[in-house]
Simulated scan of single mutants.
Amino acid sequence: MFASHSYLVAGLRLKLLLPAGFDVSRGLPNFRDFASDADAPASGRDPALLLQWVEDLTLPSGAETLFSEESDMGRTTYFSCGGESWFSLDFIGCKALMRVSEDYRKAVFTVDTSAPTAGVVISSLSRALFAQIVLLHDGISVHSSCVVRDRKAYMFLGRSGTGKSTHSRLWIEAFPGTELLNDDNPAVRILPDGPRVFGTPWSGKTDCWRNLSAPLCGIVRLRQAPFDSFEPLDGIQAFSEVYPGCSVLRSDAFLHERLCDNLEMLCSLVKVGRMACLPDLEAARICAAGIATF
């Protein structure tokens, strides 16, 4: 038997169909704040993404390996076969396999739900799918840390180890009332009233799973340096600095085109900058002033 679990992330409805015995409160605590009543009879709304557990799933012998990557969530390998995408994930010995429909709106997966890390694996699979589906809704999943100051959101990007989380903490210390929205994978959507950043259930190693949102005021790519310096960007420079932090299955030409279209629009609406910085309070002040003055 299955149990249906519905969530609302960045205004998009996600439905997980999991074995009835799987304890989502323990296995998926990061989804708790995003629980939705979308399954109520009166809702009448189809989910943007449906992810269903199945007891058995086998990768076709003719599947083509696209690429493989390591992250804090394990090793993920991407395959293609007959117009469908396949994902395999191995996290601390817990292995999963997922088959995704051509439009990325539906997926089935198999994993040992009794494994201690099964919840982490299910969360990772849903994160990978959400990053694709949000592109179809004028959005982008961005690998970044994000704070909210005076009801406006600021996103900090950079290579792993650059100090995105540190810079967010510096803003929180430098500007009273500033709060962390998400520390790894916030989502941006371009809505009729402008770009807006949403917290998501995926925040890396930081337990910051907040179902909140705020208008996006600035995006800054960080790099470590022995000094603090802010540089405003526009046009292709702005696009090029934000692009590496955007999540997309780049082998899919349609999705990649949607990413580029969404990102071009985003960079035309939001201030983008480049910040060379030390891990000090002055860096936060210079960054904030730099965004405010252009």
Rank of each mutant, 00 (worst) to 15 (best):
A187S: 11
F198N: 03
F198R: 03
L191N: 08
P192G: 11
T162F: 11
T166C: 01
W171G: 02
W171N: 03
N182V: 02
S168T: 09
H167F: 09
A187F: 13
F198S: 07
P192I: 08
S160M: 01
S168M: 06
W171P: 11
S160A: 07
S168L: 07
P176E: 04
I190Q: 05
V197F: 03
T162P: 00
V197S: 06
G163F: 06
F198P: 00
A187E: 10
D193Y: 01
E179D: 15
A174P: 03
G163W: 11
N185Y: 15
R189V: 02
L180P: 07
R169P: 14
E173Y: 02
S168Y: 07
D183G: 08
E173A: 11
R196Q: 14
P192H: 07
E179A: 09
R169F: 09
S160E: 00
H167A: 07
R169N: 14
D184V: 05
E173I: 01
P192Y: 01
I190V: 14
P192T: 08
T162E: 00
D193Q: 14
V197G: 07
I190D: 01
G163N: 09
T178D: 12
D193T: 03
S165Q: 01
E173N: 10
F175T: 14
A174H: 10
K164P: 00
S165F: 03
S165P: 06
T166L: 09
P195E: 00
E179G: 08
W171R: 12
N182D: 13
S168F: 05
T178P: 07
L180E: 13
S168A: 15
N182Q: 09
R189A: 05
N185D: 12
D184K: 12
D184C: 06
L180V: 05
H167Y: 04
R169T: 14
F198T: 09
S160G: 14
A174M: 10
R189C: 00
L170Y: 03
F198L: 00
A187D: 11
S165N: 08
D193S: 14
I190T: 11
R189M: 06
T178K: 10
P186D: 04
D183A: 08
R189Q: 08
S165K: 10
L170Q: 04
